[in-house]
Amino acid sequence: MNLHLRPVAALLLAAAVTGGCATQQQPLPPAAAPSAETLDAMQRNGDVAAEVPAPREPAVPLSPLDDPGSPLYKKVVYFDYDTAEIRPEGAELLRTHAGYIYQTPSARVTLEGHTDERGTRDYNLALGERRADAVQRFLVAEGVPAERLSRLSYGEERPAEPGSSERAWSLNRRVELVY
């Protein structure tokens, strides 16, 4: 988490570096329509506070995470409607991953929480975080150092399965372990 600068500190730092421009403002290029990537890249230019996303861990050849025959190949736990309770099959999968993360010091995992589309979007964002929290607590209880784990809720914004069927909903209420 050392990449996370507290915004106040970050602003002060940015002010010190850029000579007084305390806000992170950059004009748009006049011709191009603004894509988040452009805006983000401009923000990174000469702006210490903007966070560079950490590079994803390169896939190690023959990693069990990529081997369809390995129990670690599955990286998604599913939830019932409106709860963050971990089901027995989810607990089993998480124990397998806990063992792997514990034994693999380089492993860093983002726990991405998701919900189905029912309910309001911001409330679902909070529910997704609650699910990611539940998985984090479970893994920590299994011995995984908390600093190897981070949480990110997408709420209902990134369904795994489109549509409004019970099946789609059940596949969308999930936490994905992203190594």
Binding site: H4, P7, Q25, P27, E51, P53, T110, S150
Partner: peptide, 25 residues
């Protein structure tokens, strides 16, 4: 963007934007 949530404030006239909040979570 950048795989974390953040609140931005953008001026519609100039297109300038500012990141307002990007805390953990």
């Amino acid at each position: 963007e950048g795989r974390q949530s953040a609140i931005y404030m953008q001026d519609l006239g100039s297109g300038r934007r500012e990141r307002i909040a990007s805390y953990e979570g």
